[in-house]
């Protein structure tokens, strides 16, 4: 479990992270999404204790990271943006070393090293110098390093960067295999990765959480309220007309060149029929209606481009 309470991080005059409050329960995989320089990495560095927040509290597994730095670091596995590798070491030597400093007992060290090597598919390169490995292998050694002590909390900063598509799939599979007793935070630029791996997406922009949404089952449930309306008479500004209706919570034109209107019904509505009626009364002619889902890409773009939308979408 990870808890952040009103966390701020200031670098000089600039706030890299501004008032972030977030609670990630055990067993959840959270994806941090956001443009470059949004504060994703800074937040992760604070959770892992690499840098300390200017203000606010961070708790990992219920323990404050200031009061119990050693104890909290013991349960966290961290892959920074640049994998922290010693290029002059062999893969096994390196993993053994990380195991030792992460406090893996001497008895289990060997089996843990073997475990992460097979898990991250490093068997072929286990006796090679890290400096001679390809980027994909280096990245996997970096991931193996974060898993060596079987951590309860795993923090991965852009774990699939620099990998080829096949490797990306393998790593995603690996991330999905983290059992339900662990808490995982990963950051990424790739939208599909979030839908493929995460239970929840947190969008960060300019140091603030601008959206926080559950995916998966919850998404299907939520999506049953989302419809695309094919509207005929665009000259009458249907967006503002429909927006005035009490039964909808959100309306926008998904594609400026298209004829479709995205509508999200409010929670009490179970049927689309009253909406069509109401539209007709206001003079908006609806040609067809189809249920839809906001895919993560639309979601991200709508959040980043127009943050006023985002406030409505935060659940």
């Amino acid at each position: 479990m990870i808890e952040l309470e009103h966390v701020y991080k200031r670098f000089g005059e600039r706030f890299a992270v501004k008032d972030v409050t977030l609670k990630v329960p055990t067993g959840q995989v959270v994806g941090f999404l956001g443009p470059n320089g949004a504060g994703k990495s800074t937040t992760m560095k604070m959770i892992t204790g690499l840098i300390s927040p200017t203000e606010g509290q961070i708790r990992v597994c219920g323990r404050d990271i200031f009061d119990y730095p050693m104890e909290t670091k013991e349960v966290v596995g961290f892959l920074p943006e640049t994998p922290p590798l010693y290029l002059d070491m062999l893969v096994t030597d390196y993993l053994k070393f990380v195991g030792e400093i992460r406090g893996v007992s001497a008895k289990t060290l060997r089996s843990r090293v073997d475990h992460v090597i097979s898990h991250c598919q490093l068997d072929e390169v286990r006796h090679r110098l890290i400096g001679n490995l390809s980027k994909g292998y280096k990245q996997r050694v970096g991931i193996a390093q974060a898993l060596i002590h079987d951590p309860q909390v795993i923090v991965l900063d852009e774990p699939t960067i620099g990998l080829d598509p096949a490797q990306i799939l393998e790593i995603r599979q690996l991330m999905r295999s983290f059992s339900k007793v662990r808490t995982v935070i990963l950051s990424t630029h790739i939208m599909q990765e979030v839908t493929a791996v995460c239970d929840r997406v947190v969008i960060i922009n300019e140091g603030q959480i601008v959206a926080d949404r559950l995916l998966g089952q919850t998404q299907e449930h939520a999506d049953s309220k989302d419809f695309m309306l094919d509207v005929v008479n665009w000259d009458k500004d249907p967006v503002s007309l429909v927006k005035g209706l009490s039964m909808v919570t959100q309306v926008f034109r998904r594609d400026p060149a298209g004829t479709e209107l995205f509508v999200k019904l409010n929670g009490a509505m179970t049927d689309i029929y009253p909406l069509v009626e109401a539209c007709k009364e206001r003079g908006v002619i609806v040609r067809s209606v189809r249920p839809t889902s906001l895919n993560i890409e639309d979601f991200y773009l709508s959040v980043i481009s127009g943050q006023e939308h985002a406030k409505e979408m935060v659940q």
Binding site: L50, F78, P80, P84, G103
Partner: peptide, 9 residues
């Protein structure tokens, strides 16, 4: 690699 040394116990 300092990031490793300072995030382990």
């Amino acid at each position: 690699t300092a990031a490793l040394l300072f995030t382990v116990p």
